[in-house]
Design a protein around this nucleic acid. Structure first.
Lengths: 218, 218
DNA sequence: AACCGCAAGAATATATGATATTTTTACTTA
DNA sequence: TAAGTAAAAATATCATATATTCTTGCGGTT
């Protein structure tokens, strides 16, 4: 279907970003170029390009002449990110519910189904697929807002989602049951085109996740 | 006061970004590395780092293996950006009015004063300072929301502001009188801590600018 | 005239090595 | 302990080289 994107640059970008999101590169850690070179088998130039991209997205700090560092984490930062995600995602959801056609509904049903199956498996104790869970959760949240009709909005949201995800991965404790119920309710409200209900459920969903993560961080 | 930031990298970044915002590099234009090399007197590696940063901020397109292009413009894109700016800036304004202390008020008064003076000069026909006007407008809008207490929000807003500004610069027609009045009203409402009024004035201010710019683009 | 495929030329992506600066670290001295 | 500094480490920048990948123009075909 889609031809594999396989330049050294883009794959290095994905790998480093992934390692930051999943905590394999620890918050605040110094990113020494020599080290990265052997770890990711890429040249200096390629690495610097990658790190510059990550820096402008906010996953890396790059103080002038002092190299690169994994972005540190903090409770305040997490709170800011969650609040922004609420603001943007609720807005996008409203637009999406207003504009979504049958195609959108179909995608949403499918995304929720896949997420739901995965959640059942997780609740049954099969913890083999942390990465998969992340993917399905992302695809569900994306499917909800995908019809918002604003590329700019989707792109900002995607970055925020990743930042928020990083904190979840850091504390590594899931809300399993509750989150699954919330997903289901949101999903149904969206399909019903009940904008206000869907928005308030989504806000509560993110806020619950925030509280949960903040507690785990303490 | 502030020590001059003068690495080749950061100054190249600022110059290219400025040239995109002010239309000196035309929307959609191919950015050939050889050309940039002579124009900005920087090496290939430095240029690629810079272009990667600009690409992830959305000022440059970088399709795989096909080099770099100045981000094209479109009416839809402008509309999306204006709507997002309304969403984020109004939200930030609300927080700022809630949290702002006397220090914030002082800054705001000063920023408005400077902007106002500049607007008077412009209305008197002294069109010498397009760049300056931009700076004062920016400083005013920033001063309004600066107390919102969210670095993440301020950073997103700053990028959006620049994207919006680019369209204004492209059509090069100012709303002079009206904009000046709107600025004054917003300013006063903010100082009065009249959140709802300030927000709705701000929304209208941006929406008017959008309409105006869209008309000029047609 | 429109369409196809292909070779030459242009441009990009990536790597390597070199140099000038700046930042850190470690050590010395007051 | 504080301050100062020389050596070591790391960064920023550049020039060059090579392999790939685009783009373009030319014939040949329908």
């Amino acid at each position: 279907m889609d031809k594999r994107i396989s330049t050294v640059g883009s794959s290095t970008y994905q790998r480093i970003k992934r390692d930051i999101l999943f905590g394999e590169l620890e918050p605040g850690a110094k990113l020494k170029l020599e080290g990265l070179k052997t770890r990711y088998e890429a040249s200096l130039s390629t690495l610097r390009e990658t790190l510059n991209r990550l820096a402008s997205e906010g996953f890396v700090d790059a103080p002038e002449q002092r190299g690169f560092f994994v972005k540190p984490v903090s409770r305040d930062d997490l709170t800011e990110i969650a609040e922004l995600r609420i603001l943007l995602e609720c807005h996008a959801l409203e637009l999406s519910i207003r504009n979504g056609d049958t195609e959108w509904e179909g995608n949403l049903v499918s995304a929720h189904h896949k997420l739901h199956r995965m959640e059942q498996r997780l609740l049954d104790g099969d913890l083999s697929g942390k990465e998969d869970w992340k993917r399905y959760d992302w695809e569900f949240h994306l499917a909800m807002i995908e019809a918002c009709n604003s590329e700019n909005l989707l792109s900002l949201h995607s970055t925020l989602y990743d930042k928020y995800l990083r904190y979840q991965m850091l504390v590594l404790t899931f809300r399993g049951e509750e989150a699954a119920v919330e997903h289901k309710q949101m999903f149904e409200a969206a399909l019903d085109r009940d904008t206000e209900k869907a928005k308030s459920l989504l806000e509560q969903h993110i806020r619950n996740g925030l509280t949960h993560t903040l507690e785990a961080m303490a």
